[in-house]
Design a binder for these strands. Sequence first.
RNA 1: GGACGCGUAGCUCAGCGGGAGAGCACUACGUUGACAUCGUAGGGGUCGCUGGUUCGAUCCCAGCCGCGUCCACCA
Length: 881
Amino acid sequence: MLSKTFDPKTVEPRLYGAWERSGAFAPTNDPAAAPFSIVIPPPNVTGSLHIGHALNVTLQDVLVRFERMRGRAALWLPGADHAGIATQMVVERELAARGNMSRRDMGREAFVERVWEWKEAAHRTIDEQLRRLGASCDWGRERFTLDEGLSAAVRKVFVALWRDKLIYRDKRLVNWDPQFQTAISDLEVEQREVEGAYWHFAYPLEDGSGEIVVATSRPETMLADTAVAVHPEDPRYQALIGKCVRLPIVGRPIPIIADDYADPEKGSGAVKITPAHDFNDFKVGQRHRLPMINILDPFARLNENAPPPFRGLDRFEARRRVVAEFERLGLLRGVETVRHAVPHGDRSGVPLEPYLTDQWWVDAKALAGPAIAAVEAGRTVFVPRHWEKTFFEWMRNIEPWCVSRQLWWGHRIPAWWGPDGKAFVAESEGEARRAAFEHYGRDEPLRQDEDVLDTWFSSGLWPFSTLGWPERTADLERFYPTDTLVTGFDIIFFWVARMMMMGLKFMGEVPFRRVFINALVRDAGGMKMSKSKGNVLDPLELVDRYGADALRFTLTAMSGAARDLKLSAQRIEGYRNFGTKLWNAARFCQMNGCERVPGFDPATVSHVHNRWIRGEAAATTRTVTEALDACAFDEAAGAIYRFVWNVFCDWRLEFAKPVLAGADEAAKAETRAAIAWTLDVILRLLHPIMPFLTEELWQATGGEGMLITATWPDLPRSYVDEDARAEMALVIGVIAEGRSVRSELRVPPAARPPLDSVGASPEQRQILEANAAVIQQTLRVGAIRFVDEPEPGSVPYLAEGGTFALPVADHIDIGAERARLDKELAEREADIERAQKKLSNPAFIARAPEEVVGESRERLAEAEDARERLRSVRARLEGVA
RNA sequence: GGACGCGUAGCUCAGCGGGAGAGCACUACGUUGACAUCGUAGGGGUCGCUGGUUCGAUCCCAGCCGCGUCCACCA
């Protein structure tokens, strides 16, 4: 006997263990099974999973369980990302918090060792969380971006790109993070609005004939100015082009140059040029072959290229001193405060500096071409489709990708430097040595590049590196390209785009056929969840409180949200209740002997309730299957929800009660078998979304084997029986409308008046007689009588083309009844008026499609018929009163 | 400045050319019933605004207003 409620706490770990031990998570080896694969977006090993992961993981699991049940060799490959800068930061912070040695004091090897320890623990936590959510991924194939195989793949890709000249070394400005002392890519830059100022400085002309005023928000950079630019056609400055100014404080003469970059509209129209510390100025500097003076060290302190009093100062301190100096010199021409966007490191949160360094670059433009073409050709499709625009927008304007990072945690760049500064890029040190020997004619000492690669470099290989590439493994053959990638829009550039480029370059084929972009989970008020706001919903806490199934169903049902999924505990509670509802329905089945009958064939049922529910089950199955096929997860969840609650529980089980209490043994047997069969279909359809509860019920109801590997329902269209549908529409209609009348007129629930069917057709009479018991019980009425006219004092109502009446004169209030009828009459009048207006428009008759015109006529006829019936009963009511 | 998206019931959203929908919330009634984690019923919206196309617009087009996100921008 099933317990009164489902207890996730005890059931979930037990079932997960059973699934895992059974080997159900691994794809079947059956060669006839078509492959289906998903690679998990590898979570960062920085900590634990948040609610966004829970959504992402749930949707992937829904797909994998669905496809597995459909008989495909379904692989969901799990793993984690080393998340270079993020993880290094977390570990450094932890070291500092515990008062340990800093990274630099520890040294590279010891520090990296320490990060590995952290990684192990974090990775275990993440895997445990995935298990708690019910993720049916194949643990035997789990990968990590820094594991040996993936590291080999990274080296191979790096070397290949180098040989193809798609990776190169270049000295140019990068976004430099002074907190971490590393370069970062454009994508890791976050613009933040901050209070700032523009200082207007006067630069005296060298010949003493005057001055030129420039403005800057970063005064300290003037120490590295190597020119002042004006627009070539700016009449104010024609005479000055070619002259020099003497740079205050520094004393260096710098030229006044003409360049289009100077905008006469802005400020004074003259702009200081600092090629080593500004991206725009860098380009101007290149055009005019200006010297590039770098005045910063990696910590953004001023270096020896700055005048002695400024050396060693922090950039912000230097800023103050420069301003003070201009003031002292009488060259400060004004200050205006402004709010402007300043680039910050997305991880460190400190203002970045454009910084001149040697870095490794990927020619992203060259790799982007095939990726753009693949999406254009529909070889990879985004769901929802509009995200393709975002993808194209970025890919068509892509800039070179800086892939080197001055960090310790990551893939060390496979390049070795010779004594003369020549780089030997190779997959191993041995290979590099051989190349160096060939080059130098003798052994020379080589030093491996200190830098590591951007984390996204290895993530970009994820769909094929995890399947064994560069080996031509069976998995790679079978599961690449993967089918669906489920991920958030925030990493379309970081990750999806990189995988597209790398997959096409190295596999010659797209990495996935479909990209499903899931919403961003926010709190009930639409705010981003963050620890500081205290509005974070921890997935594990929610699983503890409501069970994994409730959380999964909630996330699935709400996944249709375009961008923001506003989650609240209340919603989860609601869907937890849905699980309980199904649980109790199963208890009802169990208590009433609705057990699976071996060999039961739904096609052979004869009772109308069973022919009807069979068709409803088939229709729901089709809806759910099509929805999951299209990644319309919310629609799938909604269809099952409605079928379970509003069809199966509300009607089918209610209808079973009188039958099961009756004496017709054949009807009882068929009803039991059909209900058990329907429950079986429900469990299968719901399993991908609520795996634990359905598996538990499956086993409790004697399902064969485990539900996780049961087959997906495939019910023929012929299961839908239109006659049964029509019959049940009348039965449900007479009950639902009758209930409404009872409720509005406040007929006491305990009253059991007779039900009069007024002027029923022979067909209607036959249906009503056949369903008398269910109508009597469900509508709480006594005898069903067939009459030609409603008796005086009875309350009439319409349902599905039939007229009914409840003789409840003793209970009702004539006024309330009059109001009810008038309200309904008014509704019908409005219908009639609307239809008549439409039909009297000749243009409508002439131009609208025939079906639409016919439909309007039908509607008018129905409304008129209803009006007549209502009028007649209204008149009768007045007679009573 | 560029791009994308969104304004429909109190809330979250679906509908996207022919009678305004769902879930939740709310109100009333109901408990020897599989289920109060429940049942039954009910109230609630000139579908952001203004034009246009059309026989017909919540739906298509244009403009406007409001909101959000991403990209660019530190003279």
